[in-house]
């Protein structure tokens, strides 16, 4: 795995506007003006973000002379980043499942304290 590649992807993802742009592009391609409008940002500002995302290999420009829409790169670093986080996440999830299971062997059935009842039990019919 190329670390420099991943570093660029992480750096690009570290900005909330760029993450929002990616989220928008995940729904389908969009032009600069289509992206600028919902964010209330000037087109040059959006263009700067798009350059960072392009250089990180997260998005690309589709060859369409007039509109030049941007689209997500499927199977690009975005998936790489995620694939890379998945085992870490799974390891911790398994560990915490283990804690849960272990605690249950210690305290199998915690019964509510009988003295401090706040709500009176409704009378049984």
């Amino acid at each position: 795995m190329n670390d420099a590649h991943l570093d660029r992807a992480f750096a690009a993802l570290a900005d909330p506007t760029r993450r929002a742009i990616l989220a928008r592009l995940a729904l389908g391609e969009a032009t600069v003006s289509e992206l600028a409008a919902p964010f209330g940002l000037a087109q040059p500002t959006i263009s700067k973000h798009l350059i960072v995302l392009e250089e990180a290999g997260l998005i690309r420009q589709r060859r369409d002379a007039q509109r030049r829409p941007r689209e997500l790169v499927v199977g690009g670093p975005l998936e790489e980043v995620d694939r890379w986080l998945a085992p870490f996440r799974e390891q911790w999830e398994r560990r915490l499942d283990g804690l849960d299971a272990y605690l249950r062997t210690l305290a199998p059935a915690p019964s509510p304290p009988p003295k401090k009842r706040k709500k009176p039990t409704p009378p049984t019919p």
């Binding site: 990616l22 989220a23 995940a26 729904l27 499927v74 199977g75 998936e79 998945a86």
Partner: peptide
Amino acid sequence: ARTLENLA
């Protein structure tokens, strides 16, 4: 790997 949709 989670899917790109999940990530999005």
